[in-house]
Amino acid sequence: MSATVWIILAGAVATYLSRIGGHLVLSRFERIHPRVEAGLNAVPAAVLTTLVAPVATTGGPAEWAALIVAGIVALRGGLSAMFVAGAVVLIVLRNTL
């Protein structure tokens, strides 16, 4: 097997460990401290924010407009509606600005 295949498989193992690891470690504790609970409740917003904010700083007017429009649509519509709205704004502005 090529080096590429080995790296892919090692990456797959690392990824699987990240997906099963949190549960395996946490399930050893019988009771969860309120602060741990609050921290876990904050996980999705905290993590997903880091996948948006830094990238947004590297963008220009088209990217910012797309995020703003998508964010506003998200207040009213569902995920698909906001995604389509953001994508349309991005593509139109990138091709016109």
């Binding site: 609050a38 409740n41 917003a45 948006v52 964010g71 998200a74 995920l79 995604f83 953001g86 091709n95």
Partner: peptide, 26 residues
């Protein structure tokens, strides 16, 4: 780039962030 390929993922992640806006301390 013209099709926005590189920036569709952040838009999608923003939608997921917004989905959790009812959580305490969001």
């Amino acid at each position: 780039h013209a099709l926005g390929f590189d920036f569709l993922l952040p838009i999608y992640f923003l939608g997921l962030v917004m989905d959790f806006r009812k959580r305490p301390l969001w």
